[in-house]
């Protein structure tokens, strides 16, 4: 069938790395596999000798709150994230972004780690994690390292994570403190089944009526999911007003490359959706920040 010959389900990270290295580049990491199997069957991928399933590694299918923040293991599915109260409280935009991926049956299988490692320009869960300034832990033969999620994307479907030799083991983000809130929205055609026309997320911290920290993420607006740093910076130092939000929109539009795609949307439409929805997302994040105080 041109997919793979062997399938491994390692119980530990060390075992996963060992197995991967045993194949010396001829094996690939698989999470929930909801994209991978479909792409393989459509002939979009070269065959691999083996798949290494990291969705059942002991200790990595849980969400926990530690001194390092909210930590999500690579086996955690979108459904588990959506249903988790801690994520709802501390990273609402992530729960919202995971809730629109695929349909319920895909969310029961697909993992956030797979979404991030796949590095697609509009991965919804990825956009949610980015706005939370999320980090990912990459495990390889030389050990483990934490990297900001935004620094892992190098092109459409291309990641600094070597998916033939390394495993994205965990993700983490700082829990929302006082005066912090986040929100996500995606524009798409039929509910539940389409790739997004545009997805956006934002996290705001408000202190004394003034924005003191902000982050914005979105996609697809270029080859990689975009952490919109310049636009977020422009929000800081003043009240969460429509005027301020529109300033951020202008910076976003000056920095993105929107594409017209035959099946999804025109450049003009995507741009109009950013103008319409980004202020609404920022207002929602600001309102939640107020409520969290």
């Amino acid at each position: 069938m041109g997919g793979w010959k062997n399938y491994h389900t390692p119980a530990t990270v060390e075992e996963a790395i060992d197995v991967l290295h045993g194949y010396d580049g001829r094996a690939r990491v698989i999470g929930g596999g909801t994209d991978l199997l479909v792409e393989t069957r459509r002939g979009l991928r070269r065959p691999y000798e083996a798949m290494v399933d990291v969705s059942r590694i002991a200790g990595l299918n849980t969400i926990s709150q530690t001194d390092d923040g909210i930590v999500i293991g690579c086996g955690v599915t979108h459904t588990e994230i959506v249903n988790d109260e801690r994520i709802m409280r501390h990273g609402q935009c992530l729960a919202e972004s995971c809730s629109v991926i695929g349909g319920p049956q895909v969310r029961n299988v697909g993992t956030l780690a797979g979404n991030v490692a796949h590095a697609l320009p509009a991965g919804d869960g990825t956009i949610g994690l980015l706005a939370l300034r999320g980090e990912v832990e990459i495990a390889g033969a030389s050990g483990r390292r934490w990297v900001p999620a935004k620094d892992t994307f190098i092109g459409p479907g291309k990641s600094v994570i070597d998916r033939h030799r390394e495993v994205l083991t965990r993700m983490r983000f700082e829990p929302a403190g006082n005066g912090e809130g986040s929100a996500f929205h995606r524009v798409m055609r039929p509910q539940g089944l389409c790739l997004p026309i545009i997805s956006m997320a934002a996290r705001l911290k408000i202190d004394g009526g003034s924005i003191t920290a902000a982050s914005i993420s979105m996609g697809p607006v270029g080859p990689v999911p975009w952490f919109a740093e310049p636009a977020a910076k422009a929000l800081v130092g003043g009240p969460p007003s429509q005027e301020r939000f529109e300033k951020a929109v202008a910076i976003v539009l000056a920095n993105v490359t929107l594409r017209t795609s035959k099946y999804r949307a025109t450049e003009e439409y995507r741009s109009a959706m950013i103008r319409t929805y980004l202020p609404l997302i920022l207002a929602a994040a600001a309102e939640r920040a107020g409520a969290a105080r």
Partner: peptide
Amino acid sequence: GKALCGACNVHLDGQVMRSCAIPVSAAA
């Protein structure tokens, strides 16, 4: 065959999933 329509839904360990998009090896 692309995990879009739901005709192939089955339960795996009690959760409903697309059987067209799950390798049989993952169900071992």
